[in-house]
């Protein structure tokens, strides 16, 4: 009797560990860095982590969460980021108002998303190849538009100053970019987990044939998926330019792999291993904290990559192993 009870308890514990492995890993890592580095838990550092490492990556990853839920992938998020950033900065530099700048930037990202949507739903190219093609074209376009990749800077006197100020200030104690992230996260949560559109996305991701045989307008819903992802990437692009007061060609691609990684780490939170908004946000936090922590304890950039690789591997291996054992 006592044996079976303790077996039961062990099983429950394993299931618990499997489900919350990412949360536990996150907690353990925070404790580790807090003891290893005196500056880790200071407000300044946490503000830095949040604003510089989390917000932009998280918004891109939210877009990818929708795309990956639908069974696809978007390799061109970097292009959406760059295009939004480029048009935004060019418009401000030409003396247009902030509204025009933001509108133009987001419109540029939407064009990238629409191009993906057309390639995938009309020409029936696989999402991987379609967005890879857009990635190549987008990179060359930027180089052609900036005489080989020259950055464009926002000098004083432009509306860029105001944006830079907004990006660096806080509203009710919360940094403005964080507010943007919270709004985006709520919107994506409602869309993906509460709306009819979200159900269609999940169905397309689980079994596209079933979605089609259930009367779902698969091409239309898929188009919205890619346009939505590009829009979120575009928001990131504008935040990026406002923060660094410039447009640096080809800087968006740096987000791609981290965003994909965060989304997949987040899937360990769900029973069906599906991407979720909460999981993605946790995945982003985990990556950001590790990067920042390794920097603080004196690891250089190259070793940080090794550390992150090992971390991803450990979280996934632990989660899969525990889950198999609990079955």
């Amino acid at each position: 009797m006592s044996v079976s009870t303790s077996d039961n308890a062990r099983q429950t514990l394993r299931a618990f560990l499997a489900k919350y492995s990412i949360l536990l890993a996150f907690g353990a890592i925070v404790v580790f860095f807090a003891t290893a580095s005196p500056t880790f838990l200071t407000p300044t550092n946490l503000f830095n982590v949040l604003v510089n490492n989390v917000v932009m990556l998280a918004i891109v990853a939210l877009g990818l969460t929708i795309v990956i839920s639908s069974g696809g992938i978007d390799l061109s998020v970097g292009v959406s980021i760059d295009m939004a950033s480029m048009i935004f900065v060019m418009l401000l530099a030409a003396g247009y108002s902030g509204f025009v700048g933001v509108g133009g930037g987001l419109a540029a990202a939407l064009v990238v998303g629409a191009l993906n949507a057309i390639l995938i739903t009309r020409l029936k190219i696989s999402p991987f190849l379609a967005t890879l093609g857009v990635l190549f074209i987008g990179q060359s376009t930027q180089q052609l538009a900036t005489s080989g990749g020259q950055p464009i800077y926002l000098t004083s006197g432009y509306a860029g100053d105001q944006f830079n100020a907004i990006a660096r200030t806080a509203l009710l104690g919360i940094p403005t970019p964080v507010i943007v992230l919270i709004l985006c996260a709520i919107a994506v949560y409602l869309l993906l987990h509460r709306s009819v559109f979200g159900r269609y996305v999940q169905a397309m991701g689980a079994q596209p044939g079933v979605a089609w045989h259930s009367g779902i307008r698969v091409p239309r819903e898929l188009s919205l998926v890619y346009v939505g992802c590009a829009l979120l990437a575009g928001i990131t692009g504008i935040l990026l330019s406002a923060t660094v007061k410039s447009y640096v060609p080809l800087s968006g691609n740096a987000f791609l792999l981290d965003a994909i990684g965060a989304t997949f780490i987040g899937t360990t939170l769900s029973r069906e291993r599906k991407p979720t908004v909460a999981g993605t946000l946790l995945g982003v936090l985990l990556l950001a904290v590790v990067k920042n922590g390794l920097l603080l304890i004196g690891w250089n950039f190259y070793w940080q990559q090794v550390g992150i690789g090992l971390l991803v591997f450990l979280v996934l291996a632990a989660s899969f192993g525990l889950r198999r054992a609990s079955h």
Binding site: Q202, A203, Q207, G209, V210, A211, W212, H213, E272
Partner: peptide, 11 residues
Amino acid sequence: DRRAHGVALGL
């Protein structure tokens, strides 16, 4: 083909 078109097994 129930598994491909009828029901989504993962839902």
